[in-house]
């Protein structure tokens, strides 16, 4: 092959690779614009005020009601519960892995966490129906365990691997000199962990929580299967709830394309998209701070 041909091939393929890189921007923009375009069609039919302040979601009733509040509160409640369980459990486990566990023990524990992350969400949701739900019903003496608490427990399980992995990275990233300095000043192992190492890794821990939160917020199948799906404002963790993701999953298959109800599902998807985007950006901001802090 002559040099000219080789060089032109080289140039051409560089453009191909670059195009592939640009596709990712196109994809993100495409998803956002698609959601936005369809939402605008929705807001041409329904006033934004009614959408954001309405307290009922009932698109198929005679007077269609498109209030996002019950869905938003449901999503918030389930996710909050999941985080209350997953954050302490995840961070303590991460601390154990990075500070206390023997390297050999670590080689056993790491795959355990990877396996937990690999279990498909639909299998976790299935356990919500056959195991966690009946368990909750028994403990609280209620008739049916398909409620927000069930969803929270399952989402916590799904968010745990994310929280643990990133927290562990964050704790590991704290320089050894910090720990040594603390120990040299006479602090014991625990004081060092709780007063030096964990605070120093705080930005990373926050990033871990944010990414775990994003994972829990966006999860569909588990909440669809395990939370009872009643689109009313819940009063507590033992009420049935219906999250944004579950609403899209239930209703999208059942609406004629290009109707108000169809557009409404894109409108709630935009809200979900913006929330997860904000949380991911926040997580990234803290992850970057950690990097800069230790650089």
């Amino acid at each position: 092959m002559n040099i000219k041909k080789r060089e032109s091939t080289d140039w051409l393929l560089k453009q191909v690779f670059k195009a592939a890189g640009l596709v990712t921007i196109g994809l993100l923009a495409g998803i956002f614009l698609m959601l936005l375009y369809n939402s605008i069609a929705f807001f041409a039919d329904v006033k934004p005020v009614d959408f954001f302040t309405g307290s009922q979601w009932d698109p198929e009733s005679s007077t269609s009601k498109y209030g996002i509040a019950p869905l938003l509160v449901s999503t918030g409640l389930v996710t909050l519960g999941a985080m209350v369980i997953a954050i302490p459990l995840g961070i303590f486990t991460a601390a154990f892995l990075s500070e206390l566990a023997h390297p050999k023990l670590k080689t056993i524990l790491k795959p355990v966490i990877e396996m937990l992350a690999a279990i498909p969400s639909v299998a976790i949701g299935f356990l919500g129906i056959v195991l966690v739900g009946p368990g909750i019903a028994k403990i609280f003496g209620i008739q049916n365990g398909l409620n927000a608490l069930n969803g929270s427990v399952l989402l916590a399980v799904m968010a745990l691997p994310t929280v643990i992995t990133i927290s562990e990275d964050a704790i590991n990233a704290v320089p050894h000199s910090h720990r040594e300095a603390s120990l040299a000043l006479g602090a014991n192992k625990w004081e060092t962990l709780f007063k030096v190492t964990l605070p120093a890794s705080l930005p990373g821990l926050i990033a871990a929580v944010m990414l775990g939160l994003g994972r829990a917020l966006g999860e569909t199948m588990t909440v669809l299967m395990a939370t009872g799906n009643a689109a009313v404002l819940p009063k507590g963790f033992l009420d049935a709830v219906r999250t944004i993701t579950a609403t899209i999953a239930i209703e999208m298959g059942e609406v004629p394309y290009q109707t108000t109800h169809y557009f409404a599902l894109f409108a709630i998807a935009v809200v979900l998209f913006l929330i997860t985007l904000a949380i991911n950006l926040l997580g990234e901001y803290f992850a970057n701070r950690l990097r800069k802090f230790h650089a």
């Binding site: 009922q56 009932d58 049916n144 398909l146 299967m225 009872g228 799906n229 009643a230 689109a231 009313v232 049935a240 219906r242």
Partner: peptide
């Protein structure tokens, strides 16, 4: 009633 549970 909105309190009717909506089952799958």
């Amino acid at each position: 009633t909105p309190y009717a549970k909506q089952m799958n």
